[in-house]
Simulated assay, not measured.
Amino acid sequence: MKVNTSLEHIAPSYRNLALLDDKQRIISIYTDRWINYPEVSSIRAVVRAVYEMPRNIQAQCILVSAQSGMGKTSLFTRIESDIDTLRKRDQDHGGCISFSMPAEPTFSAFEDVVGEALGVPIGKIRNGRIPNTFSRLAHLRNLRIIMIDEVHNLLNANRGDQRKSLALLRAMSGPPLSLSIIAFGIDDAENAIRDDDQLERRFEIYNLPDWREDEKFRSFLAAYESILPLRKRSELSRSDKVKFLLRSSKGITGNIVKRITRGAVWAILDRKEAIDMECLEKAAFIPPYIE
């Protein structure tokens, strides 16, 4: 297909998508994309720094908190990929296991998800002591980091199970294993670790704030626009569009991305090839399927 419009507004690696037919472009728009921005970039860098640190008696741990919809789970997945890349570059680097805290986090359920992440049952944990099975496997695999998503679910546990789970995390991050725990959760996730003073002191807390009208948000919008296969500039960072997106999304990343992706599809369906205000307004509704 020959397209006469300049595609310089699209990042070079995505320009070929703008040459596809409408249906293929719409499929591309709905495909999850990763956009790096300063807050997530700095958290990724911090985790890599922790991964590269020599083992200390008490490991450095990190808690990433954010409102639901701010992209913490996408960041979790991206950091998993970062660690895997570092591991492949140097086999002497430590290993990593990851899992999500169960929605109903009984201590038995916690034991089970740790065992599933390792690939073998770890045995029953008593008095916060690490089972020999877990210790041996951690040593054999040179385990360095444990990543836990949805750590705020600990708040759903009864008092006894919560204390047992925190004691286990404290034991994992202390000697002799000294594993760094990288935890993710919604805003009240900090409360999940506060009941254990020793454990809390090991955590450094990072927050993904809601978006507001500033240069960071405009840069994020410009970056997102650069990966959309639209054949004309949308100028999403223009003041009226910035204000509309913040107002309609309440500053939540997931809501913003939904408006932009749907708006991009409407731009194709309406033969505009750029997201205008009408497209953003219509993006409150799911665009129809096209044959």
Rank of each mutant, 00 (worst) to 15 (best):
L168D: 02
R141W: 15
R163A: 11
N158W: 10
D149V: 00
R141N: 13
M147D: 01
A157K: 11
A167T: 01
S173L: 01
M147E: 08
L154V: 05
D149S: 09
A157W: 04
R159F: 03
V151A: 02
H152R: 05
L140V: 01
I146E: 01
G160V: 14
N158S: 01
L166D: 00
E150Q: 03
L143D: 03
N156R: 13
A157D: 01
R159K: 13
S173H: 10
M147Y: 09
D149L: 04
N142S: 11
L169I: 11
N156K: 11
H139A: 14
V151C: 12
D161Y: 14
Q162I: 13
D161K: 02
L154I: 03
R170K: 15
R141D: 06
I148N: 12
D161C: 06
A167L: 04
G174C: 06
I145M: 04
A138P: 14
P175D: 06
I148Q: 03
P175C: 09
H152K: 09
R159W: 01
Q162T: 05
L166F: 05
V151H: 10
Q162D: 05
R163L: 09
N153A: 14
S165H: 02
N158C: 15
S165M: 06
R170A: 12
R144C: 05
H152D: 13
I148W: 00
G160I: 07
N142W: 02
N142A: 09
L169H: 12
P175H: 13
I148M: 14
N158Y: 10
L169P: 09
E150A: 13
L154H: 02
N142C: 01
G160S: 12
P175R: 08
R144L: 07
L155I: 13
I145F: 00
L169V: 09
L154G: 08
A171V: 04
R144I: 12
P175T: 12
V151Y: 01
A138L: 07
R170D: 07
N153M: 15
K164C: 03
L140K: 13
R170G: 09
H152E: 10
L168V: 12
N158R: 10
A138Q: 02
A171I: 06
H139W: 06
I145A: 03
R144V: 01
H152V: 04
K164I: 02
R141E: 14
H139E: 01
R141T: 14
A167I: 02
E150F: 13
A171S: 12
G160A: 11
L154N: 04
Q162E: 12
M172W: 15
L155Q: 11
L154P: 05
N142P: 08
A157I: 06
Q162P: 06
R170P: 07
M147T: 06
N156S: 10
R170N: 00
N153I: 15
R159M: 09
R170M: 04
A167V: 01
R170Q: 15
L169S: 12
G160F: 10
I148T: 13
N156D: 04
D161M: 14
A138M: 04
L169M: 15
G160Q: 08
R163C: 06
L155W: 08
L166E: 00
S165V: 00
N142E: 07
R163K: 08
A138W: 04
S165P: 06
A171E: 07
I148D: 01
N153V: 10
R163Y: 03
R163F: 05
G174M: 08
